[in-house]
Design a binder for these strands. Structure first.
Lengths: 228, 228
DNA sequence: CCAATAGTGTCTATGAGACATTATCAG
DNA sequence: CTGATAATGTCTCATAGACACTATTGG
């Protein structure tokens, strides 16, 4: 092993949710230096005996007070530019988490404040460290994954209507989808949705059938996002 | 910052190429403990003032003696299970590299030997550390990326024929594609291929037009791999 | 009744896949 | 010439997208 350059390893989280009519990201206001007072992605050090995924879930729970089962979480990428943290060499493993509409987050240990911020109004350049890039990468990953995975349901409560699922696509992609074609597509896709059997009128109008997520891991054929 | 658990950070590489008629991965035989004598993915420590991408390219150059411009390289994922290295806590950032047919690699500093191994005959379980998982993830990433990116050309020399590009798909996916439909599809895709203007008879039969990679970043609509 | 949304049916353009046909080289 | 592969054309079927229409609730 000889000598090796020592580093700290952290996890950072891009946590996305849909509250009301907006796609939002979880930000914390830093209570300590560096970047004290600035908004940042939640995160923290990986403990000595801890798996990366475990560290990410722990930080998520600390920051949101969330039941682990309700949130989709996946690794995003590693970021390790020298100088990304002014104190010492820190390599961070970023995670992407998608959650249904959540209660207001609670501030964690290092954070003075935690908040859901609409992505439409967020200027990424104001974020601490290199979190602008991590946030942008995470958002793009989420957008891409809606195309070919059933991940949109991760933004919905356990039982949801086709219209609610469509709203997820429309908000994340900032696009309009034809309700009738969307309905035909998702109800026709094998293993995507499982009918619960009951209906709801919470969206107004004719009662809508409720569905749960089905066992499908892949959306085939994919949902098409018209590319520029 | 208080106290933090110190770690070493490495990069490991899944380097794929096509030699003759087989998809191959670059492996090195370890010359030092642990796993001395076992085959492993090439890799090494990230230096103190070095970017992760830079470290990956440096290791690749050391291990293959390759001109940097000819190889596609992208980050794959981070791996950090405690105990994945028996010596100390090591978090590795894995990279995926795709290269055209290459000269025989040269052994690096820590490696006794370097070799191209056909993926069809490789038992991943024999690899050192957790390299079985990294290799499997890298291979699956490469397979998936052929579907929706122009990445297959990374396996080809700068100028190549449609048939050579098709061979890449067939070898990586282990599938057969109709030459006529494939030809129509790739020559019709916007920005994918740029005709050089010359032809070659190196494949026998009627001379085939030579192409270079075009500027397209995305293959739209994607190449379809028939899913199970 | 009317307003609103759910859900179905129909038409059309596009593209994938199967496969015939013609083109152009080496020997 | 033959044998090989390149390149193009044609047909059919599936599906995305546009949009008309019917269904079922609340007010």
């Amino acid at each position: 092993m000889e000598e090796f350059p020592p580093s700290a390893v952290t996890v950072d989280l891009v946590v996305l949710t849909i509250t009301g009519e907006q796609l939002c990201v979880l930000l914390v206001r830093r209570g300590i230096e560096p970047f004290r007072g600035a908004w940042a992605l939640p995160g923290g050090f990986v403990l000595a005996d801890e798996d990366l995924d475990t560290a990410a879930r722990r930080e998520l729970a600390e920051e949101t007070g969330l039941a682990p089962g309700t949130v989709h979480i996946e690794q995003l990428a590693g970021y390790g530019d020298p100088g990304r943290d002014p104190r010492l060499r820190v390599v961070t493993i970023a995670y992407l988490a998608l959650a249904p509409d959540l209660p207001v987050p609670q501030a964690g240990t290092d954070a003075a404040e935690a908040r859901w911020t609409p992505v439409a109004t967020l200027d990424p350049a104001t974020l601490a460290f290199d979190h602008a890039k991590i946030f942008t990468d995470g958002l793009e990953r989420a957008r891409a994954k809606l195309e070919y995975t059933p991940l949109a349901a991760a933004f919905c409560p356990p039982e949801f209507t086709v219209a609610e699922l469509r709203r997820v696509y429309e908000l994340v992609w900032d696009a309009r989808l034809d309700p009738r074609n969307f309905h035909r597509k998702v109800t026709g896709a094998e293993g995507l949705l499982e009918p619960v059997g009951t209906t709801t009128t919470r969206d107004g109008g004719r009662p809508a059938r409720l569905y749960r997520r089905g066992p499908a891991e892949l959306l085939s054929p994919p949902m098409l996002r018209t590319r520029g």
